[in-house]
Amino acid sequence: MSPKFLVVNCDDFGQSKPMNQAIMHLLEERRVSSATIMAPAPGFEEAAEWCRRRGAVNIGLHLTLNSEFDAVRWASLTGDASLHDEGGHMHKTVEAFERLADTGAVLKELGAQYEKAVRAGLRLSHADNHMGSLYGTATGRSHIPHALKLCAKWKLPFRLFRKVHPGDSLLSGIPGVERAAAKASALAGVLGVAIPDYLLSHPFQAREGETYERFKEELIGKLYDLPEGISETYIHPAVEDACMQEHVPHWKKRVWEYRLMLDDDFAYAMNDAGVTLTDYSYIRTHGRASRIGSAFALARELLRK
């Protein structure tokens, strides 16, 4: 059987107490690989203190440029006006961020988030991006080259992907995604930034008529269809919370993701499908491409019409 490795990352660590509670539990039980922490969010201090106390080494930085929910909002660390809406919070949508954020302000903010995490005593394992705001999916204005240069400076792997798995309907449905991935992964290789081979996505929202059992069946099916190499998938787990259930859209999906990671059926399927749960320390070692080969690949992509 070909080797299949999977990173299961908990996004949005530090967003709120109910999310922190779920993520801490899953990390303690080793049901997930890692989590990425949000430096501007209100639950950051609680999450960072837990990481320090436990000596966690599988916590990454969730580069955050959006604040999407009315019930849980935050401002940037640097205060630049272009990063905020009229209420003084980070933009709710990726489109607003892409259209309005000044590039210099974005880079300053990302640096401030990294510095805050380091000052908090976190030993960062990797970085990724909240809501995909740096990828340019809304307007085509991508900040990925800047993010990769920062990760090279910080010596951190980054969430990206070399190839699009045909079974991933969300990613494969984005126009031009394969060429964009080829360019970005080649640049990562040139810069020496380690990345996974594949990113497996699923809808953030609960779809009409969807139940926990249907969601579980879909995610378990992805395990059996996992491609050879290193894949990453991400979840946003949370415990049940009446206030969040009322005020945050699709909160039940967050609860389902938490429940799924504790479900014995999911653990059985991982083993039965021959999938090895790994983390970004494995990607750091095995996720780098040849710099020379990457330079040729990048030149080839840039010359394509």
Rank of each mutant, 00 (worst) to 15 (best):
V72H: 05
R52V: 11
F44A: 08
N66V: 14
A75Y: 03
R73Y: 07
I37L: 12
L61S: 01
N58R: 15
A39P: 03
L65C: 12
T36W: 03
V57K: 13
A47W: 10
F69D: 13
A56M: 15
T64E: 09
W74Q: 07
W50Y: 14
H62T: 06
S67N: 07
A56Y: 01
A35L: 10
L61Y: 00
G43W: 09
A39C: 06
P40T: 11
S67F: 13
E49N: 10
S67D: 10
I59D: 00
M38F: 04
P42A: 11
C51T: 15
L65P: 06
W74S: 11
G43H: 07
A75W: 02
A71N: 07
E68F: 08
L65D: 02
I59W: 00
A41I: 13
A48S: 11
R54K: 14
P40W: 11
A35H: 00
A48W: 06
R73N: 01
A48P: 02
R54A: 05
A48Y: 03
A41F: 15
F44K: 04
R53L: 06
I59L: 13
W74N: 06
H62E: 06
C51Y: 04
R54Y: 10
E46G: 07
A41W: 13
L61G: 00
L63R: 13
V72K: 01
T36Q: 07
I59F: 01
W50V: 05
D70K: 07
N58C: 06
D70L: 07
P40R: 10
V57G: 02
G43E: 14
L65W: 02
M38R: 00
F69V: 09
W74A: 08
L61I: 02
F44G: 09
R53A: 13
D70C: 01
G60V: 06
A71G: 03
E46Q: 15
E46L: 10
A41G: 14
C51W: 12
G60Y: 00
S76W: 05
P40E: 07
W50H: 02
R53P: 00
E45P: 00
E45H: 06
A56P: 01
H62I: 06
W74T: 08
W50E: 04
A56C: 14
T64F: 09
A71C: 02
C51M: 08
S67Q: 08
I37R: 02
I59C: 01
N66S: 06
P40C: 12
E68H: 09
M38I: 08
D70F: 11
E45Y: 06
L61M: 09
G55N: 06
T36Y: 04
R52A: 06
S67P: 06
P40H: 10
L63M: 15
E68P: 03
W50M: 09
V72G: 01
A35K: 00
V72C: 13
A35G: 01
T36F: 08
R53K: 09
R73W: 05
P40V: 13
A39M: 04
I59T: 00
V57L: 02
N66G: 05
W74K: 01
A75E: 12
L65A: 12
P40Y: 09
E45S: 15
T36G: 01
N58F: 09
A41Y: 09
